[in-house]
Simulated scan of single mutants.
Amino acid sequence: MDNGDSEDGMVENRVTSVDVARAAGVSQPTVSRAFTPGARVSPELRARVEEAARKLGYRPNTLARAMIKGQSNVIGLVVAYLDNPFYSEAIELLSRTLKEFGYHIIVFTASNDENSVDLAVEDLLAHQVDGIILASVSTTLKLTQEIRNAGIPLVLFNRGQNDPAIPAVTATNYAGGRKAANFLVGLGHRRIAHISGWQGSLTGVDRMRGFLDGLADHGLEPVVCVDGRYDRATAMAATREIFAGPERPEAVFVGNDHMAFAVLEALQHDLGLRVPEDVSVVGFDDVKMAAWRVFDLTTLRQPANEMVAAVVDMMMQLINGKPLERARVEIDSALIERGTTRKRNRE
């Protein structure tokens, strides 16, 4: 039986759950339960229903089910930096984890300005999503109130916010920046630069503040501190300018790995400097590419798997009307030492 058009242009009758029930020798409610995530049905019956559905070419109408239940089983995700490999990894983890709870994600991209984010959220609300995750984008009080008025749970992922009422999951950004400073000073570096994350984001600000405070603990200041805006081209241009002079820094802490890869390229290929012999480089995120031998980047790990698990846990609690134990979750950022920094003197 075909769900599509016939050769004479007539649309044949669609396969229904009743057809599947008849073929599987079960009731129609059993078919519905077999295709409902989390519903109780024996493995044997589920397998029999799925086999009958496969043979008949049946696909459950999730939209109709959502209209009946008043629930779409879709979570909306708004993200700004898809060129940053951290977010491609995180989206894959989010999709996989949410699927275990019977949810799917719909992804909207937005630049980091109020109008772009507002439009993306408006689209998500029109899609009747059950929850919204804002990743790497900031929200305004007006937008937050609009989401609350719609009764839609909201969680921030990797983007802090000054409003303590908004649930958020981040790395320990301030502590991570401080850890980077202590590490580089401990290697003997004194002339240290910082190419920060976008200073319009609390994430970038916190990493920079931690780094500056860490240097101050040793009586030091950065030789230069530049906003890299989480942008590859900006980070490369800043690197060429910072390191072109005779009094170049001995080390640089970069606000994320995406920019750190650009910094490495500018240092080694544009300026002919050796890493780590001439310059030590530390990033932040520990994306999979950081461990590739071509980069071998020393970095602060932002554990995407733990952060995603925390975001999904928060979202499921909110959807089910349960109070959150903690509205703010920070996951520790461990220092991962690789080949872009000097070896420590262990004598």
Rank of each mutant, 00 (worst) to 15 (best):
V263P: 06
E241H: 13
E50K: 12
A304L: 06
H104N: 13
I319C: 00
L184S: 05
M10F: 13
R46E: 12
G186H: 04
L141D: 15
Y58T: 02
A120D: 06
N61A: 05
A21N: 00
G25W: 00
D123T: 14
A21F: 00
V137R: 12
N3P: 15
A266K: 09
V137I: 14
T62F: 11
E44M: 04
E50V: 03
R159F: 11
I105G: 00
D278C: 11
V294E: 12
D270S: 13
S32Q: 03
T16F: 03
A39L: 02
L141V: 12
A260E: 06
E241F: 06
G255S: 09
R342Y: 02
Q199K: 14
R301L: 14
A168M: 15
G214E: 04
V282W: 07
S136A: 15
K343S: 13
F284V: 08
G70K: 02
V137D: 10
V263L: 08
H258E: 13
L187A: 04
H104L: 11
G70A: 03
L297K: 05
I133L: 14
G228C: 08
E89W: 05
R46P: 01
V49H: 01
V20M: 02
D285Y: 06
A291S: 15
E44I: 03
H258S: 13
A291G: 05
G197C: 09
T239Y: 12
A193R: 06
T172C: 12
V205S: 10
P37A: 02
I195K: 05
L335E: 08
E325W: 02
A171F: 05
Y87M: 10
R190N: 07
P164S: 08
E146P: 00
E12D: 11
C225T: 15
A266V: 09
N173H: 10
D313P: 00
H258R: 09
P60A: 06
A180C: 07
S6F: 10
H218S: 06
R48C: 00
E44S: 12
G160E: 14
L184N: 02
R326I: 01
E92M: 05
A64G: 12
N61L: 07
F35P: 04
D8A: 07
P246Y: 00
E277L: 07
A216D: 12
A23Q: 03
D2A: 13
L156G: 08
P303N: 12
Y87L: 11
D8M: 03
L156N: 11
Q145T: 10
L98E: 01
E241G: 00
K69R: 14
A120C: 07
H218M: 05
G160Q: 13
G283F: 06
F108H: 15
D130P: 01
D213R: 03
R178A: 14
P164A: 04
T16C: 04
M1W: 02
D217M: 10
V41C: 01
G131N: 02
L125M: 12
S136C: 14
D83R: 14
S95H: 08
R14C: 04
L56E: 02
R33P: 01
I75P: 00
